[in-house]
């Protein structure tokens, strides 16, 4: 149940910052030493996107996803992706109801506000693509009937790096549907030490109480949508995206959807900073998480071990920020 403090619906930027800070504090009490990852996760949540967390096993990917889910009082489902998982295990099935003598739709785990998909790249491509429609259209179509998903709806998927054994890399189309990909990274020694203290006794996840509910999040999303994006910033985003398309080291550049996601995420990011307008700084901070996972390096770049992250970082350092003429 929602905690009483958010009884009055959060409205406007101040309310947003308040609620967002609470969620952030809650998540950070579980995931120590990763403020940036937490902030990015919140950003994706407020920009109505989906989050892909990629890292080696055991650094707290699932923990972050769970903490986020737990701190918001909303319906949360968790799916452990395995090679034998079927699409219907995600979306739901139509089963024949003997009594009613008709097919009845049994909603799958996707009918939740937050879907935590663990190790999504262990599932077969078929199952992975079953998520496609859900993520983009926010609806499920089974046997010709479409069912709308709830709002907010966010998929938080974790995956191991593709080099690991027993994984199927996500297809480009699916990767493009994730607003951002973040990686956790190892905690620094101090944070790890503290983790030992805290986690030694009991899981902090168990003690986590929700600090906001779905309606709160919906209101926050509305606030984020009204954020001001100056034409110069839009132009900057376009420049950045175009540069990835023309880059000699990239086989596939960013899609128009990426542009959209980048602007949306920047709005949320600015709002989390208690600002009602977007800065190029926001775009720069978000460029790698939002763009890098959609880009495909050329074979030559791969040989040189150039990763898309490097290319995006380089572009950010190279592209001039729009400024008034001298």
């Amino acid at each position: 149940m929602a905690v009483g403090t958010h009884g009055g619906r959060a409205s406007g930027l101040d309310g947003l910052a308040q609620v967002a800070n609470k969620i952030r504090d809650a998540v950070e009490s579980v995931v120590e030493g990763k403020p940036h990852a937490v902030r990015l996760a919140l950003t994706v949540l407020l920009s109505e996107g989906h989050l892909l967390i990629e890292d080696v096993p055991g650094v707290g990917k699932t923990m972050l996803a769970k903490a986020l889910a737990r701190s918001i009082d909303c319906s949360v489902r968790r799916v452990q992706f395995t090679p034998d998982l079927l699409p219907s295990d995600i979306t739901g099935v139509s089963a024949y109801n003997q009594e009613l003598r008709e097919f009845e739709f049994k909603p799958g785990p996707v009918f939740a506000n937050l879907l935590v998909g663990d190790e999504i790249n262990r599932a077969s491509p078929k199952t992975q693509s079953a998520l496609l429609e859900c993520m983009e259209e926010r609806q499920v179509t089974v046997d010709g009937t479409s069912y709308r998903l709830e709002r907010p709806f966010m998929v938080v998927a974790t995956q191991n790096p593709v080099e690991m054994e027993g994984t199927y890399p996500l297809p480009e189309a699916q990767r493009d549907r994730f607003t951002a990909r973040i990686s956790m990274g190892y905690p620094d020694p101090a944070a790890e030490l503290e983790m030992l203290d805290v986690h030694g006794r009991s899981s902090p996840l168990d003690r986590l109480a929700p600090v906001a509910d779905a309606a709160d999040v919906r209101a926050l999303v509305e606030v984020v949508r009204d954020q001001h994006v100056a034409p110069a910033v839009r132009q900057y985003v376009i420049d950045l995206v175009t540069a990835t398309r023309n880059h000699p080291e990239l086989r596939l550049g960013a899609s128009p959807r990426a542009t959209l996601h980048l602007v949306r995420a920047a709005r949320a990011y600015a709002a989390l900073d208690d600002r009602d307008y977007v800065l190029p700084d926001d775009v720069q901070d978000l460029a790698v998480p939002v763009l890098a996972h959609r880009l495909l390096p050329t074979a030559e770049a791969q040989v040189e071990r150039r990763r898309p992250e490097h290319v995006v970082t380089e572009l950010v350092h190279r592209l001039p920020v729009p400024s008034p003429r001298q």
């Binding site: 100056a230 034409p231 110069a232 132009q235 729009p322 400024s323 008034p324 003429r325």
Partner: peptide, 9 residues
């Protein structure tokens, strides 16, 4: 009209 591409407020 202050900025290029009308980036002014």
């Amino acid at each position: 009209g202050d900025g290029p591409g009308g980036d002014g407020p």
